[in-house]
Amino acid sequence: MTQEAETLTSLVAERVGDGRGMTYREFAEKAVDPETGDSPSRDTLWKIRHGKSIKVDPSIVRAVAAALRLPRTRVQAAAAYQYTGLVLTEVAGGMVLHNPAVEGDTSESRKAVQAQQEREQEQQD
């Protein structure tokens, strides 16, 4: 049985609100992008919490990850799934974004990730 991918809304809903670990006010105060210092508007955070459409921006994803104290890749994967329908899967030490209906043999994906890693290593050497 395949586990349903997380959404940005589900990550926030599990942790923010009455009886959860954080109030909406605390969430808004803690939602600061550690790279830019930018904070999403309260309206944007409300839309995320209620499953409404937003203009997804890396700064927003980083701010939500910081507020929820979750790994950035987990929040990125949740945002990708919610807003594009794609899932993020670890393959051969790398990450692959793909259609969730694609299952089974991942050998081609593994080869592609390994080839990219080798190219990056060669550039560093």
Rank of each mutant, 00 (worst) to 15 (best):
V32Y: 03
S41L: 08
W46V: 05
P34G: 06
K30F: 09
E90H: 09
D57V: 05
L70F: 00
A28Y: 02
D43F: 12
A65H: 02
G94P: 07
D33K: 05
T106M: 13
R62K: 10
D57R: 10
V113L: 10
G94K: 07
E118R: 15
D105F: 13
F27T: 02
D18R: 10
E108W: 12
M1W: 01
R49T: 12
E29P: 01
D43A: 15
E26S: 14
R15Y: 03
S53K: 14
A112V: 12
A13M: 10
K52N: 13
D125G: 15
R72H: 12
M1C: 01
G17N: 03
M1P: 01
A63N: 06
R42N: 13
G94M: 11
E118L: 15
T89I: 14
G85Q: 11
Y81L: 09
V64C: 01
K52S: 14
E29S: 09
R15N: 11
S10Q: 09
E118Y: 12
L70M: 12
Q114C: 05
A115G: 04
R110F: 06
S53H: 11
A78N: 01
A92P: 04
E90V: 08
G21H: 00
T9P: 07
T23D: 05
E4K: 12
V113F: 08
T73M: 11
E4Y: 06
V12N: 03
H98D: 00
E35I: 06
V16K: 05
T36F: 02
P40N: 04
R20H: 14
Q124N: 13
A67D: 00
S107A: 15
P58L: 09
A79L: 06
A78C: 07
V75T: 07
P58G: 10
G51C: 09
R69A: 13
G37L: 03
S41Y: 03
G37H: 00
L11G: 03
A67L: 01
V64M: 01
L88A: 13
D33I: 04
V75I: 00
L86T: 01
H50P: 04
S59E: 09
A66Q: 10
A101I: 07
A101V: 11
A79V: 06
D57H: 11
L11V: 02
T106V: 14
V61L: 08
T9L: 04
A79N: 03
A31D: 06
L70N: 02
T106K: 07
Q117H: 14
R119E: 14
E6R: 08
K30P: 00
S109N: 08
I48R: 00
A101H: 09
E122P: 02
Q121V: 13
T2D: 07
G51S: 09
D105K: 11
A101E: 14
M95R: 10
